[in-house]
Every structure is written in C-alpha cells, then in structure tokens.
Write a protein that binds this DNA or RNA. Structure first.
Lengths: 342, 342
DNA sequence: CTGAAAGCGCTTACAG
DNA sequence: CTGAAAGCGCTTACAG
C-alpha cells in the first residue's frame, strides 16, 4: 500500500483514449498549434476524463523555456521587499511565469552560490532584489542568454539591466524640504555603505544641502537594519549637541530612529527633530509615525522589471540598460511644514 | 549574432572530454552513487573546465523528484507572512529544496486554479500559508502522492496536515490578562470570519472571559485588513458607550486600531483602552505600539512544517495530522499591568 | 490537419 | 566500478 508510485497521466494515455496520436494531444495543449475542431474536442474530453495536465518540466526541457523566473532577495523585514515580491509574483503569474524564490544574505559569496542553484533550474530570467552581484557571474548569465534585472539596485556593469527610482533626486528633494522647514543642524543616517541606493541617496542629499546653502553636520550608519539604526540614532542624539533634522536612508530605519527619539530620548518630532525617510512603505502613513518620505513608485518599478525581462526573453539582442523612474516626495507631520506649501 | 541559442553544456560533453561514459558523469554528480576516485577526478576536472552543472529539470523528470516546494500565500502586507516565507525558504534551501511562490487571493476558485498550476510543475510538496483549500483539491494532491501542509490554518479534512499555534489557548490567555488588568467593558475585533485562526481565537477568548466571569459586549469585524480594522474600530469606539479593553484578532489589525484610538479619537492606550493583539510580529515590540500580543512560535512552526513535509516525501504512508504548537503571551504597555505580575 | 520518429538532458537497471 | 541502452514526458521537424 505504502509508496505506490502514483502514476501520473501522460499525453500518451490521453492520445490512446482519444484515439489520436501523441502529437495531436501536444498540439491541442500548445497555444499556437493547429488542430482540427474535432481533434481538439476529442482530446479535451479525454484529458478531462483522465485529469490530464501537461508536465511543465518535460515541456521546459524541449522548448528550453521553463517559464520560471528566479528571484533573489535578501531580507524581508524591510516591508518594501515583501510588497515588491508580491507584486512581482502577481504580475509574472499573469504572464504565465512563476517565481522561484531564493533567499541570500548580502554577502557576495552567498549570492554567487545561490545564483548557481538558480541556473540549475534553467530559469528564463532572474530578478535580484536588494542584492548585488559579481560581474563574473553576470557575464556567465549573459553567456547563457539569461536576462538579469537588478531591482532597486544598480551596478556599473553594462550587461546588467536595472530598475531604480531616481535616488539622487530623492535625496536632493529631501534636503531642500528639510532646509525649507528651518533645519539648521542636519544629520544623516546611512544604509549599507556598499549599496547603490545608499550611495546615491546620500550624494543627492549632500548636493541638495549644498544648493540650499546648508551642510551635513552629523552622520551615522544604520546598515538598513532596525537595530543598527537604533544604535546609530542613540549615538547621534544622545548628547546636547544634536541635529534638529535627520534624513534616514530608508523608512525601515526611520521608524527605529523615531522610536528612539520619542520613547527613549523624550524628544518631539518634528518639534525638536524633523525626520524624513525613503521608500514610503505603507507603515510610513500610519498615524503612529506619519513619516515624510520619498515614495518609490513600486507598481511602476515592478511593471518595468517585468517588461524588461519579457523583452529580453523574446529577443536576446536587446541591450540591457538602467531604468530610472521618478519618485515623489510625500510630506507628512514628521517634518516641519514649508512655505511653498502653506 | 542575435538569438544564437546559447548551447548549454551537457553531461555528454563532459563525458567526452573526460573520456568516460555519460553514466559515469551522472554517477559523479549523484550523491550516493559509486565511482572510482580516478573517475571522479577526471569528471570533476572536465566539468569544471566546461562549466557544467546538471540540469535539474531533466533529473526531475526521471527521478520524479523536482525538489521544488510550492508555496501559496495570499497577502504579504501582514508582516507575519513575509517572515514565514523567509524562514521557510531558508530552511528548505538548507535541505536542498526550493520554493516556487504563488500568490492567491483568498477566494477558493483562485486557490484552486493556482494549485493546478503548481501541480503542473511536479512539485514535491505544497505549503499553503494563510489560505484554505477545497477538500476535492486536497484529495487530488493526495492521489498524486503530493503532501500538502497548511501553515497557520486548519481544516477538518484529515488528509491535510496542518501546523498551527494553539489559537484557542491564546485567546483564552488574552481574556484572562485583560480581565486581570481591570477590563470591565470588553470588545473584540474579528478577522476574516471563515479563517480557522479567527474562529479559534475568538472561541478561546470567549471561553476565557467566561472563566473570568466577564463577557463580550462589543464586536466588530476587521477581516484581517488594515483599512477594514480601522473602520471597525472607529465604529466601535466612536460613541460614548465604548469598551475599555479590546482584543484584536491579529497584530496587523491591532496597529490600525491603536492608530484610530490615539490619533483619531484622542484616547489613551492603555489608560482609556487596553489593546491586545495576536502574532507578536516585530512591529509589536516597536516603541510606537509596544503591543501586548500572543506570540506565535514562528521558528518552531517553520521547522515543524519542513519536518512534516520531508517525512511525507520520504514515506507516503505517514498519516497527516494537525500539529498544534504552544504560543506565549507577551505583556507590553498597551495593556494594564496585572497583579500576578507586579 | 495528422502521425511516426527523433530527441531534449538526464538516470537507472542491466551486463560486464 | 563502468558502459550501452532504454526511457522519463513531452515537442517538433518531417512526410503525408
């Protein structure tokens, strides 16, 4: 009784029952293929009765198309990524693809081995969310004709397509907003130093401050992590000599910073300190935080990612490039109101 | 130039270069198989030089084991699920499996069609997180010998294994805790009425109230959704006749309720109203909420889920059952302290 | 439109 | 330990 290999229904079974050839069955289940109305009927009937469904794996082996997209993601505790994963899955499902998920910590070695595993599954494309990747590996994917898209991260390698928000511009607008709100002593809490998002947001912020005649006086590193951001905030704000405005490189860390400011240090936001974040994840709009943030256009990012993927799957020759989408400053009560808005 | 099908390296290529048979190559890449040291060396060398890796799909077709686990999940906005997905992926990767993600809204029809797609991929097992499933479909999976595990949900069908926290006991403890804290007028905000978690938590809560000599006076429905929970809270607390304690069926909704109470209605938590949630997601411990909650033992739930899956993959005859794990009440400042704790 | 045949890249009895 | 051969479940030229 135990361990009877439950024999799956194959196309040959259906063919026999329908009184046609295996080829005919295959054609009925292949969208573009030609089959007479009569054949289609017979086959559909037999398939229905037998509970037949084509084996995707077998099909994949022949066509070379698995209709699987590999998705590598590092940490799901920043709420931006679960949402991205959700939208991406839904969008890809709609197109007849499915997502094979791989968790990777952000160390290159780990990403590398995970990528190898992905390739073993003959995926049709790869999306790297929140992780970087070595150029060597990128080249290997390229040789194999497998498109790779970096999501919310960029890299100099031109063979890598990427989809990002204009992080530089976001940082710039935050700077102007803070200064316009009367910020005089300004701080910045950085994300992981190696990340392009971190680098570009900070560069934009500094440029914005410069344009506004202000400058950065405090800097801490939160590494994109809740706990580390807490510690960074504690250090930056503990003394008497502290910022009256701080830009935190993403919302996830900004929540930690606000908690420290209010609950731990008894400071008022934005009375004592204005706080701005980046991403505009849903929590940012929750009353407990009501955080001013630069919104990443998540839906547009996801759509573009899927477009890029589909385009390159259809045509190897498409040249990968960086896709920069526009974000939007969302002003909320964690920063002081500015004149141009009054 | 464009569209050269990039020919992948096959086991035959490696065999030729190593001067051995295809079988030999296969054996070298099959963990248990026997091969002489010399063969192993030659093959590994040739494989390395050619950049060969076995095609998982081809292997899957023969062995009948895809090493893919299908994961169906509904909404990723409740932070409990992203974490579950993350842990599950990591744990499964460790065991040499990978997760194919399918998003499904909670309508049965949708789950059904998604399940069909999953089966097309010849998955070795299925985890349903936060969604239910028809018995018919469950039977179909069973016939195919594909184990299904419900995660954080149960159903009467005995062919379905499930892993849950003791939701009834959780509700019970919350009731005792609220009453011990002096609650006199008690409210409950329900999740989706069809969900086993909702049903069991509420039943436990009612039983606990009864034991403590109290009773439920207010009831709203939040459907496990942020917005709906807001509305329910607004309705429940708007009048003068309102609860002084409320149990919200999960943390995700409890945050919405707290926001409404404090920001919208100007009430103090727990001064005017004590609030308790369920799950103990990370945000619950953030200072802005500091929410009393019944903790689900996420790691244990994930480990158990993987165990159950592996057990049944190894042996079809294992009888599916319900696995109920113990949770733990985490008391925080959103509820009033109780004597037994002073 | 349709079927017989070959083949996708691998594994697995079967002999040796 | 090793190789030749068959076969997993499908698709796709190739004839008809």
């Amino acid at each position: 009784m135990a361990g009877d290999p439950p024999s799956r229904v194959t196309s040959l079974d259906v063919a026999r029952r329908a009184g046609v050839s295996q080829s005919a069955v295959s054609r009925v289940f292949t969208p573009g293929a030609s089959a007479s109305k009569r054949t289609v009927e017979k086959v559909r009937k037999a398939a229905e009765e037998l509970g037949y469904r084509p084996n995707v794996l077998a099909r994949a082996m022949i066509t070379g198309k698995s209709r699987i997209i590999g998705l590598v993601v590092a940490y799901l505790d920043n709420h931006f990524y679960p949402l991205a994963v959700e939208r991406l899955s839904v969008e890809l499902q709609r197109q007849g693809y499915h997502v094979l998920v791989f968790m990777a910590s952000n160390t290159i070695g780990d990403v590398q081995s995970v990528m190898q595993e992905i390739l073993d599954y003959q995926v049709d494309g790869i999306v790297l969310a929140s992780v970087s990747m070595s150029s060597v590996l990128a080249g290997r994917c390229d040789d194999l004709g497998i498109p790779v898209v970096l999501f919310n991260r960029t890299q100099p390698d031109p063979r890598l397509a990427s989809v990002v928000t204009d992080n530089h511009e976001g940082g710039r607008q935050i700077a102007h907003h803070l200064v316009a709100g009367g910020a005089a002593r300004i701080g910045y809490i950085a994300g992981f130093e190696g990340a392009s998002t971190q680098i570009e947001r900070e560069a934009g912020f500094l440029e914005g401050l410069d344009e506004a005649g202000a400058r950065l006086e405090f800097r801490g590193v939160g590494n994109f992590q809740h706990e580390t951001a807490r510690a960074a905030a504690l250090e930056m704000f503990a003394g008497r000599d502290r910022p009256d405005a701080v830009f935190v490189c993403n919302d996830h860390m900004a929540f930690a910073v606000m908690d420290v400011l209010r609950a731990k240090l008894g400071l008022d936001v934005p009375g004592d300190v204005a706080v701005a974040g980046f991403d505009d994840v849903p929590i940012a709009s929750w009353a407990a935080y009501d955080l001013t943030s630069f919104r990443q256009p998540l839906d547009a990012m996801v759509s573009r990612t899927v477009e890029v993927l589909m385009e390159r799957i259809a045509d190897d020759a498409v040249t990968p490039r960086r896709h920069t989408l526009q974000g939007e400053l969302v002003r909320r009560s964690s920063t002081r109101p500015t004149e141009d808005r009054a």
